[in-house]
């Protein structure tokens, strides 16, 4: 069972690199949705010995929200604004990949100093979740388009969820649900805001908004 868990975690790491590497917004949206599915699979796999209703309900809600509803919202925003690709980011794509490599090394280093209370989990899970958080932050910094930045925010949230699974397994149901609700509302509001920005200014470059 542990092998499958390790493989899923490796997939999570690789999906972050794909997210950093792609310029098409639609693929970004798809990758973040796939990340949410991978995370749910990890959560289920790591608790196979003690599955309870609470966890299953949470996983179902997570998948429904992060892999179905939110991508749909973001797809509508993307189509509505007519922006298909992030053409001139602050940090180019090859350079982003290398930065991603550096971030991965950093998160493995950092996780050396942290100990996981749950021994059953994959050894790479903690660094992988840190790496997902870092990737999200990096995308928020390195990209110009507002939609891509929302993508970074969602990747970061995925990372925080993964971090939660790896460290605090037994956090109360209500906390996880309310975090999910937060994300849902945030993405919804950002989607509406981006839509209005693009109507008002004919672009969604946050770089030009700040002048």
């Amino acid at each position: 069972m542990n092998e499958w868990l390790d493989l899923a975690v490796a997939l999570l790491i690789l999906s972050n690199f794909m997210l950093v590497n792609t310029s098409r917004l639609m693929s970004c949206i798809r990758i973040v949705a796939i990340q949410a599915v991978i995370l749910s699979v990890i959560a289920l796999l790591s608790h196979l010995h003690a599955l309870d209703v609470r966890l299953v309900v949470l996983v179902i809600i997570t998948v429904a929200l992060k892999a179905l509803v939110l991508p749909q919202v973001l797809k509508r925003v993307t189509v509505g604004t007519g922006v298909e690709r992030e053409l001139s980011p602050f940090v180019g794509y090859s350079l982003s990949l290398m930065a991603g490599g550096g971030l991965l090394a950093l998160s493995f280093l950092m996780s050396h100093f942290l100990t996981v209370p749950e021994p059953g989990l994959s050894r790479f899970f903690l660094p992988a979740s840190l790496f997902t958080i870092f990737t999200g932050l990096f995308i928020i910094i390195a990209r110009k388009k507002a939609v891509t930045q929302v993508m970074g925010y969602m990747a970061m949230e995925n990372g925080i969820y993964a971090f939660g699974v790896s460290l605090a397994i037994h956090e109360p149901f209500i906390v996880e649900i309310s975090v999910l609700l937060d994300v849902f509302v945030a993405v919804l509001i950002m989607g509406v805001a981006i839509f209005h920005i693009s109507h008002e200014f004919d672009h969604i470059d946050t770089d030009q908004l700040s002048v």
Partner: peptide, 21 residues
């Protein structure tokens, strides 16, 4: 092409870092 090859390097790097653990 450089992006693809950088991607390959990154794949190797991920493998290396995982192998280190």
């Amino acid at each position: 092409v450089p992006q693809l090859l950088t991607g390959a390097t990154i794949l190797s790097l991920v493998a290396l870092i995982i192998a280190m653990r």
